[in-house]
Write a protein that binds this DNA or RNA. Structure first.
Lengths: 350, 350
DNA sequence: ATGAAAGCGCTAACAT
DNA sequence: ATGTTAGCGCTTTCAT
């Protein structure tokens, strides 16, 4: 932003409150920051003066001395290869998942008087801007949700000493805290359910296999099916979009027309699979059972509603934020991971 | 956030750079802020010193003296009645529309080194927190997208003298800048198209009629149909969600089984209408033509893909942000509105 | 328990 | 064209 005049009329300062209360700035400051050793009577006087003057602390002044921004960044990071259709940001939020993360983050932050700074890091340039911005000390830490496992950003952030917590385990092991869901357990839940409803010729639509989560879901599913006596599970790779799910399902159907069950690594792809199945005249769940993953809004909005694996995204995001604030308050704290257990939500598709 | 030790090692200050370059702080400051009247040779020296020391300006210190936060808020505001299923924030971002707005805002802000602070104001408490936060001077202004026409927030913001720009015209006329789309023109486009493809028994699924946009789309549609010789257009009210669209379509079908065309006031509801139509065995577009509004990702993801009215949400959001920065730079500037023209996107549903 | 005073890092007069 | 200097509003020793 370019320069201009001050937009707001001068607001009351500590000095004003101190004068009104007949005490010193220091005392007012103590009251505001909840430091004890202040006479209760004086505290009362000060509080009254604060209310009377309509005083609100100036964050810049406070930050300058405390060396804390009092803000955190919410960084959505991508690969840089996604500029196929439309701007990255638009696409990102087309996936309801990110909205749930944002929700969880804000939900945790807000009661604490903190609000997240929203940043996108979809390519090298954007990443550089993010780094530059954070280097200015605009945020005390960052919660990071990345669409790409090889994202260099987590490494860069920890490298510059900025507290950061990831949503989902990074692919190259780096010393950074993260929250994640037990993908393998979730996939097992899906496998168990498909088998329980009598499916025997089951295939899976995977996410991009460079992503650990996609790997885990695939492997977990395969292992579970193997445990049920089905060592071979046909699979087709998608990229977590609905279209990719539809195409993957087409391929699966072409090669294995006899299949009677599908596990898609997320709901969007499951929805695409539903489309392909209908297109080929297969009834769901009559002919083919479909299980998704995420329990996103896509799951309830699709017809039939999706049986899926739910993970508590909002809770996870809140926990991620909690971890971040912990790291901010105590930079020496060792990195940790918190893994959430998913659950099966049975609807109509399987 | 509670207090703790400084998270980062002391970074170089203006003083350090000045010393390294053998000049005064003021000169370095001038170079950084692009103020002319600095000897080119010295500029070079200073730049070198900056690079050498790895200096980055401290935003808090700068804000303290300029009295500018250098940040803007992106506020998503709701009615408070939406807590039906899941947290407000989750629901908000389930609508791809908000993602597009965020995208446009960030797209405009980022090249200018500004990032938005994300805030939700879904009920009185949240609204109070938003106000309190903004009163602290954490943002120089706010771009506001509201799901409710009677939202008190715009009034509150302008009341406290904070520059703000809305996405969509507020229902009670208040002196505030906004961007919007020509809803009536869009609705007319839909009507013209439905008539052009031979539809004569046309109905409409409206948005919540308390919202001006929903009103305008309805009225624009009715007027245009009247101009085509169809004075009566059955309508059913929805609330912009897919489910509401489905239910509205059910009602329409029950009362007017002969209908052959539908205009839904947004894509999500159009999608719901598609579901209801299929459920009743109507072919789209064979038996019934369907036109949506928004050209959101829901339009391309639905089957058949939706013919819809496109408005340039990202561009509008960018313009909204531009207007905000203008108001921030010059608080005296009179409020303005910018209305964008929508266009018809023909796909398969009509 | 309270006050006085020293800055935090920066910008913007003002002086030269 | 450059330097000097006075704060911006706050927290935090250090005295008292």
């Amino acid at each position: 932003m370019s320069e201009g005049r001050p937009p707001v009329p001068a607001s009351p300062t500590l000095e004003d409150v101190a004068r009104a209360a007949g005490v010193s700035r220091a005392t007012v400051s103590r009251v505001i920051n909840g430091i004890r050793n202040v006479d209760p009577a004086i505290q009362e006087t000060v509080r009254h003066a604060i209310a009377e003057t309509g005083y609100v602390p100036n964050r810049a002044a406070r930050s300058l001395v405390t060396r804390r921004a009092g803000a955190v960044a919410l960084v959505v990071s991508g690969t840089g290869e996604e500029s196929v259709d439309g701007p990255f940001h638009s696409k990102v939020f087309a996936d309801p998942f990110f909205g749930r993360v944002a929700s969880g983050v804000v939900g945790f932050l807000r009661p604490r008087g903190v609000h997240p700074i929203l940043m996108f890091a979809e390519d090298d340039e954007a990443r550089a801007q993010v780094i530059a911005y954070l280097r200015q000390g605009n945020a005390d830490g960052a919660v990071l949700v990345s669409t790409n496992a090889l994202d260099p950003l987590p490494g860069l952030l920890t490298g510059m000493g900025l507290p950061a917590v990831l949503f989902a385990r990074p692919s190259p092991p780096i010393p950074i805290s993260y929250v994640d869901v037990a993908h393998r357990t979730g996939a097992k839940l899906a496998a168990d359910h498909l088998v329980a409803v009598g499916r025997r010729r089951v295939a899976t639509v995977t996410g991009p296999l460079a992503v650990p989560a996609a790997q885990d879901r695939l492997n977990g599913f395969r292992d579970a099916m193997a445990a049920h006596g089905h060592p071979y599970v046909p699979c087709a790779e998608g990229d977590f979009t609905q279209d990719s799910g539809e195409h993957a399902m087409e391929r699966l159907l072409a090669e294995h027309p006899e299949l009677d069950g599908v596990f898609a690594a997320n709901d969007l792809m499951a929805r695409g699979a539903l489309l392909a199945l209908r297109h080929h005249g297969r009834q769901v769940p009559g002919d083919v059972s479909v299980v998704g993953f995420d329990d996103s809004s896509a799951a309830t909005a699709s017809r039939p509603p999706l049986t899926t694996i739910r993970h508590p995204v909002e809770d996870m995001a809140a926990e991620m934020t909690r971890l971040l604030l912990e790291h901010v308050d105590d930079p020496g704290r060792p990195v940790t991971s918190v893994i959430f257990e998913p659950s099966l939500v049975v609807r109509e598709s399987a």
